[in-house]
């Protein structure tokens, strides 16, 4: 590469960029290179006002290959998945999906992720669901359960071990 970012001495990473693009193509979408930086996505981004996530910058960094900067940024984890960026992009691009792709790559490359996500994954692997039926309270603060309300017990996956096995394999593959 003959391009260097003089503020960080980082160089564009072609390989990492390819990985992002592959995931995006798998989703049957156009890769970030089509982005002409109009900024419409960031103007309407529901996360930006709170957390400074700039979807147009995510697009710019990924089309220029500065993936590492994205992988290390905390903002990518603040997308609320409102999908407005994808809905309104005049080039039919999907910053939200590029953000998903980058997060997926961050997970694979062993970046620290919020425990909320790992717990959720463990729950799905263990029970098939992100959580088990909870005891809740009604407006009068009485505790209520699923059974207590007369609802039938949840019928989850019968062979959870089997599901777990397949999921572990599927996670390694690119099912995209």
């Amino acid at each position: 590469m003959s391009i260097v970012d003089l503020t960080s001495m980082a160089e564009p990473e072609g390989e990492a960029q390819k990985k992002v693009n592959e995931i995006i193509k798998g989703l049957k979408e156009d890769i970030p290179n089509d982005c002409y930086q109009c900024g419409k996505c960031t103007s309407g981004c529901e996360a930006f006002i709170l957390t400074e996530l700039e979807p147009h910058k995510v697009m710019a960094l990924s089309k220029s290959g500065f993936i590492d900067e994205l992988l290390n940024s905390s903002e990518i984890w603040t997308c609320v998945t409102c999908l407005k960026c994808k809905e309104r992009c005049p080039q039919d691009l999907a910053p939200v999906d590029v953000i998903f792709a980058v997060k997926n790559i961050a997970v694979v490359s062993g970046k620290q992720i919020d425990s909320g996500y790992s717990n959720m994954l463990q729950a799905v692997l263990g029970t098939g669901f992100i959580q088990s039926p909870k005891e809740v309270v009604d407006r009068e603060n009485n505790a209520v359960t699923r059974e207590g309300l007369g609802l039938t017990p949840m019928k989850g996956p019968e062979e959870i071990a089997k599901l777990q096995q397949v999921l572990m394999k599927a996670a390694m593959e690119t099912l995209r």
Partner: peptide
Amino acid sequence: RGRPSEIDVDEDGKLIYNIFDTTTQKL
């Protein structure tokens, strides 16, 4: 330099929009 994502009409009938200016990096 930017493009609004949406335009809204206020209760008093004024038009209001957010726009991210990609030159100053300000919303």
